[in-house]
Design a binder for these strands. Structure first.
Lengths: 94, 94
DNA sequence: TAGATAGTTTTAAAATTTTGGAACTATCTA
DNA sequence: TAGATAGTTCCAAAATTTTAAAACTATCTA
């Protein structure tokens, strides 16, 4: 990976984590294997479009992957990627 | 430190690092002990007020401390704080 | 199949962030 | 001391981000 590309991705990751909702979402995912939109929407008092926007930002940063099960969507944290860009994040942030 | 306070500070740090100029500034400071405004202004093609704004954001995040020597200002990176919130940042990001 | 539910997309408004000109303070130097 | 230089503050414009209403697609269920 080119150095400038690494920087660009790092900045996208920092931007993703610089919003309170998204930071908290990632922390929630540190504990469990995966979480659904239903649970995220329960945790944050935001509209569905707003939540959808946050899923997208985290996915575009490469931190989340999604899986669809019927009408429901579930998200997983890419812990390897997190570790590559933010080693020890899981320990430091819960 | 209360948990919510840690989160608030973490988010301020992520926000500080989510701007390309500030991310690069911090990386520059990983290598050397301290750097002056003169050098930062040489590295980025931004106005003095814009640079001043970035110094402030990084200071408010607690990442930078400043020292005045005559008319010149120099900045240092708080590596302990960086390590507390982003362990291994120095290794991963140069 | 009709209606309900889960989530996305489009669009626009509100809030925040980034930027630089102008005016300022502090320090240096001739 | 007068003029030049370093950096800050105030202000407003431009750009970006966050948010939700409305309309949409896909799936579930009665």
């Amino acid at each position: 990976m080119a150095s400038s590309e690494f920087s660009a991705q790092a900045i996208r990751i920092f931007k993703a984590l610089s919003d309170p909702t998204r930071y908290q979402m990632v922390r929630m995912l540190l504990n469990c294997n995966e979480l659904g939109c239903v649970e995220f929407e329960k945790a944050f008092e935001l509209s569905k479009p707003a939540m959808s926007h946050h899923y997208r930002v985290l996915e575009n940063a490469g931190l989340l992957s999604s899986r669809k099960e019927g009408a429901y969507v579930y998200f997983r944290l890419d812990k390897e990627r997190l570790e590559r860009f933010l080693p020890g994040f899981d320990q430091a942030h819960l």
